[in-house]
Structure formats: structure tokens, C-alpha cells
């Protein structure tokens, strides 16, 4: 690696790192929203995934047990949301917000009970970056894309798989039909609420996996409220990516890049108030959203309660 591109590689690798948990959550949310459900409990699922991952990995000593526990924890929150929003027909926005707030409280409570004030908390072994032989020596792209922890590669596979299911299978067609015209779909024999439940729970599991990535591929420990709004950013990413798997992958990378850029700018000690850099990712998202406005069309049944 030549010295001149090293800073660029470092920055782009950070963009991919920051984008990875966001993309996991956004991939989950795209499933739910294409099925017509706007799921604000995705933030709660991520946070539950963080704690599940930390406890699972700490208790077993194996980070992959932690990843699995994060997945399950995320799915449990989503199951709660599905029960309230889809089956008890509560307003989706309110149900999602409530589940997220409950998740903040419950994860904090369990964490404090589990650690009872020890300084080190739940520290876990993190997943090391895994260089892919051959590919990682491609100039620039290699160290950026192919020297990342395994969950980063897996999220690429997950996005491809979601694309395949949505556009190339009958199940995907039914799911999209549930999100566009629930009544018509039901008339054709689609079990709308069952499909929505499946999409929400699988989506929550993916968000939980994203939270687990945050703990096990990045921070190495749990901190209360550590998702810090990433679930909500994932929802913005779904809009920015126009409810398409390829679009959300790009949008997650863009958001990761903007965030990574603000850390670089702050660390460079430029003579600009740091508050400006803190705004950067959000400004960029806003600009990108306005740029695609007009061409954006949400699933027609998004947010509507199905009887």
C-alpha cells in the first residue's frame, strides 16, 4: 500500500465499518416496509441485539454464540411489536415507539443486574477482521472491502438474498402485494397478516444481528443506549434507498462515509466549529433525500393497519 492512499483507505474502511450495522437494520426494515409495516421498534431490536450479543458472548466465551443471541433478542422485540401492531391493530408508529422505549428500559435493567457495578462490565472478545485471500490485495478496494470482520461480508449476502426473495420468488410477490394492496392480496388468498408478521420478525432478527455486530465486531462491550438512534437512521436509509435492497446498500455506505468523514475532519483540527461536522451526516442525508424526492414512492399500504 503506497503511503499516499493510506489515509483514503483508512477513511473508506471506516465508512464500511460504520455502514455495516446500519445496513443490517435497514435490510430488516426494508422487508417490513415492503410488507406494508413501518416498524419503529427496529431501534429497540438493535439495542436488544447489543445486549443479547454481549451476554451470549460473555457467558459462552464464543462470539458466534453472541451473534446468535443478538439475532434472537432482536426477533423477540419484533415479535412484541407484531403482536401489538399487526394482531392487536394498534397504530404502528405508537407501538414501535413504545417497544423501543421498553427495550431501552429493559436492556438497562438487565445489564445493571448482570454486572452489578463491576468496572469492566461485560467485556467480550471481538471478531477480528478477516482478510479474504487474493481479494484483499486489490489496490484500494481490497483493504476497504475485503479486510473486514465476517458480519460485513454476511450483510452483502443478506442484501442479495433479500433482493432475490423480493423480486424472484412467489413469497416475495405476495409480500410486496401485502404492502401495496392488502385487500386485493387477501382476495387472491394471501395471508396478509401472517406474511407481515414474518417480515417484521425476520427484520427484527436482522436488526438484532446489526446490534450484535456493533458489540462483537466493534466496541467489545455493552453500553446502555449504545445504538444511539442507529435504528432510526436505518429507517431513513430505507427511504433514501427507495425501498430497494441495492439502494439501501448504497445509502448505508453513504451514511457511513459521511459519519467517518466527520471524525476525520474533527481529528484534523480544522478551524471550523466542530458542531458543523457533527451535522454533516444528517445534512447529507437530507440533501440526498431532497435530491430523490418526487421519484420516491413508498409502498402504498405502508403504515396502514390491516383488518
Amino acid at each position: 500500500m503506497s503511503g499516499s492512499i493510506a489515509p483514503l483507505v483508512g477513511f473508506l474502511a471506516a465508512a464500511v465499518r460504520i455502514g455495516t450495522p446500519l445496513l443490517w437494520a435497514a435490510a430488516g426494515e426494508v422487508l417490513a416496509e415492503r410488507a406494508g409495516v413501518i416498524n419503529l421498534s427496529v431501534e429497540g431490536s438493535m439495542l436488544a441485539g447489543c445486549l443479547g450479543a454481549a451476554i451470549g458472548a460473555h457467558a459462552s466465551g464464543n462470539p458466534w454464540v453472541g451473534m446468535a443471541a443478538g439475532l434472537v433478542a432482536g426477533a423477540i422485540i419484533a415479535l412484541g411489536f407484531a403482536a401489538v401492531a399487526i394482531w392487536a391493530r394498534t397504530d404502528q408508529i405508537i407501538a414501535g415507539t413504545a417497544l423501543t422505549m421498553a427495550s431501552v428500559g429493559v436492556t438497562g435493567l438487565i445489564y445493571r443486574q448482570a454486572t452489578s457495578g463491576q468496572v469492566t462490565g461485560l467485556s467480550v472478545i471481538t471478531l477480528e477482521p478477516l482478510a479474504i485471500p487474493g481479494l484483499h490485495s486489490i489496490p484500494l478496494l481490497g483493504p476497504v472491502l475485503f479486510a473486514q470482520p465476517l458480519p460485513t461480508y454476511l450483510v452483502g449476502g443478506a442484501v442479495l438474498f433479500i433482493w432475490f426473495v423480493l423480486y424472484r420468488t412467489t413469497l416475495g410477490l405476495r409480500l410486496r402485494a401485502a404492502g401495496e394492496a392488502a385487500g386485493a392480496a387477501r382476495a387472491h388468498g394471501v395471508r396478509v397478516r401472517l406474511i407481515q408478521t414474518g417480515a417484521v420478525v425476520v427484520g427484527g432478527a436482522l436488526a438484532g444481528f446489526g446490534g450484535a455486530t456493533l458489540v462483537l465486531a466493534q466496541v467489545g462491550t455493552f453500553a446502555e443506549r449504545m445504538t444511539a438512534g442507529r435504528g432510526f437512521i436505518a429507517i431513513a436509509i430505507v427511504v433514501l434507498g427507495r425501498w430497494h435492497p441495492a439502494g439501501i446498500a448504497l445509502a448505508a455506505l453513504l451514511f457511513g462515509a459521511a459519519t467517518a468523514l466527520q471524525y476525520v475532519f474533527q481529528a484534523m483540527a480544522l478551524a471550523v466549529p466542530y458542531q458543523f461536522f457533527l451535522m454533516l451526516p444528517y445534512l447529507l442525508a437530507l440533501a440526498a433525500l431532497t435530491g430523490v424526492a418526487g421519484r420516491v414512492r413508498a409502498p402504498a399500504g405502508l403504515g396502514r393497519t390491516v383488518d
Binding site: 477513511f11 471506516a14 466493534q218 481529528a267
Partner: peptide, 14 residues
């Protein structure tokens, strides 16, 4: 905490 890590890593790269 993930932001704390990225902020520190950006400094370390410099």
C-alpha cells in the same frame, strides 16, 4: 461507544 471508537481510530490513523 461505537462513535467513541471511530473517533479514536480516526485520530490514531493521523
Amino acid at each position: 461507544a461505537a462513535a467513541g471508537r471511530e473517533a479514536a481510530l480516526a485520530m490514531i490513523r493521523l
